[in-house]
Design a binder for these strands. Structure first.
Lengths: 173, 173
DNA sequence: GGAAGAAATTGATCACTGTCTATTTTCTAT
DNA sequence: ATAGAAAATAGACAGTGATCAATTTCTTCC
């Protein structure tokens, strides 16, 4: 996935490279979508770990550390990161519990820092605000990786951080 | 594309439905990627038109009209809108000039309104800020359409608009 | 050590995809 | 009516996800 990217990823190619037949892959994972989901869960866990590492070595600007950690992981693993959003479950099928937990864990890390900055408890309000802040960084990161941001000019991660700070400032009042 | 979505879209199926053979589609468009690009260019032009219509019937809150127009188009045409970002050119190949122009036109509409709100001329600074604001809305809209925002709680378009206003407020100073 | 049963693995097969090209059909202008 | 250009076709190719009966490998117990 890291090497080929979501569009060119193939279960058969994986089977060939790991020395198993296609059938085994399907016995283990059930379907192509569940296979990709397993990979994406792994990516999510690695990303969470990267953010935690950033925070543990961070100075007073923990929000800045998170935004930079977010971008750094995505830029270091563009194909894996993009696969997280390129892949969609077929209509009717639900995402794995493990995947949801991994995603929740990632958001939880960010949420704690958002609440800390605002001096608020971790509640529904900070949860919703965290989602919105993540959406801000996600949008900037997406445009950075797919080349859209180049036509805008400026540094996407600096812009994202500025918008986050503005949001947190205004929310203070 | 509107009906099947990017993942399940197929040139052969299109050929069948329009009553031509696959070969003709390839004679006309050159490749699958260029075919999708032609569709996406059309989507971009339709989206631009929708935003212009909104603005022409808008009250004093033109930024609000843009954000709502952005969301409304995406929610009314989820598959077409998502295809805009799901599709990526194969490495080495470039996007059509027509596509870039259509995208530039869309951004231009937003940029004029951003400059107007700030009382600034349309220059490199407002251009970069516009890109950042579009990234904000894009992130919220993406999470709204792919279901991610549900787990956050709250209304994605209201959140996007609040973040935009915060960004424009802080930028004033 | 060997046999019975469970577990894991295989590969052939299916319907589908994008891509390409030689061939045929249709149109256009003289 | 005809020569030449343009448009459209069908079929072949290599690749995909999916399925499943048949085979191989591993456990377990006597």
């Amino acid at each position: 996935m890291a090497e080929a990217g979501f569009a060119r990823f193939s279960a058969r190619e994986v089977a060939k490279r790991v020395g198993y037949s296609v059938g085994t892959l399907y016995n283990v994972f059930g379907s192509y979508d569940r296979f990709v989901l397993a990979i994406n869960t792994r990516t999510l866990l690695g990303w969470t770990q990267a953010l935690e590492d950033r925070l543990s070595g961070a100075g007073p600007d923990r929000i800045g550390a998170l935004v930079n950690g977010y971008f750094d992981f995505a830029e270091a693993n563009p194909n894996r990161w993009m696969a997280l959003y390129d892949h969609r479950m077929p209509p009717g099928e639900e995402v794995t519990e493990r995947f949801n937990q991994a995603f929740g864990g990632l958001i939880g890390i960010i949420e704690r820092e958002v609440a800390a900055v605002l001096g608020s408890p971790v509640d529904a309000v900070t949860h919703a605000l965290t989602g919105s802040l993540v959406a801000i960084v996600h949008g900037h990161c997406t445009f950075a990786l797919n080349g859209t941001y180049r036509s805008f000019g400026g540094d996407p991660r600096a812009a994202a951080l500025a918008r986050i700070r503005a949001a947190l400032t205004v929310t203070h009042y």
